[in-house]
Simulated scan of single mutants.
Amino acid sequence: MAREPQTYDLYGQPDDEYDIYRDFTFAETKLKTEHISGFKLHVTVATGQHDQLARGILPTLRALHTHHKVVLPFRYATFNTGVQAGKFITVYAGPEEPAQDIVDAIDPVLVALRNQGINPGPVPMARPSNHTEMELPIGRSGMIRWLWLQDLKRG
């Protein structure tokens, strides 16, 4: 008897568009970036408000056809206490112009969510500095940080 494929709660998103990491921490879009270097964006949200934020912003990221990953619902509280804190959604945005276009599309959605009481989480710390330097803010929502990486696939 064949087993049914396992599905996951991906904040209301179609799970056939995402791959689940083996450690069951992230769901990542099957669409991958073509850029070698560029900007990586992190969307941060307070623990306990991640479900509302994800349901509000993931449809926009999917509509943009952008490579992104999101921490799975049952992992965020623990994930948000370690060195990766504040990195709820990671967007592999690429060069400055496409990265800015993504920010211009998602920041108004995040501002609206802030107006509904959704708050930013911890400030993400940059992996290239061994998590000793804060990532740079961008946008009006206070929920997006970005950093430039020479190798987006390894950073």
Rank of each mutant, 00 (worst) to 15 (best):
A46I: 05
A46W: 03
A46S: 15
G48K: 08
D51F: 11
Q52A: 14
L53M: 14
A54D: 13
A54R: 05
A54E: 04
R55T: 09
G56M: 05
I57S: 02
I57V: 15
L61E: 12
A63M: 12
L64R: 13
L64D: 04
L64S: 11
H67Y: 13
H68P: 08
H68M: 00
K69H: 10
V71K: 03
P73E: 10
P73N: 06
F74E: 14
R75K: 15
R75T: 06
R75C: 12
A77L: 04
F79D: 12
T81F: 01
T81N: 07
T81E: 15
G82D: 13
G82F: 09
V83L: 11
A85Y: 07
G86V: 14
G86F: 13
Y92E: 00
Y92N: 11
P98R: 06
A99Q: 00
Q100F: 09
D101I: 08
D101A: 15
V103H: 05
V103Y: 04
D104P: 01
I106W: 08
I106T: 10
D107E: 01
P108I: 01
L110N: 06
A112P: 00
I118S: 02
I118W: 00
P122N: 11
P122R: 10
P124L: 06
M125D: 00
P128R: 06
S129F: 10
S129A: 02
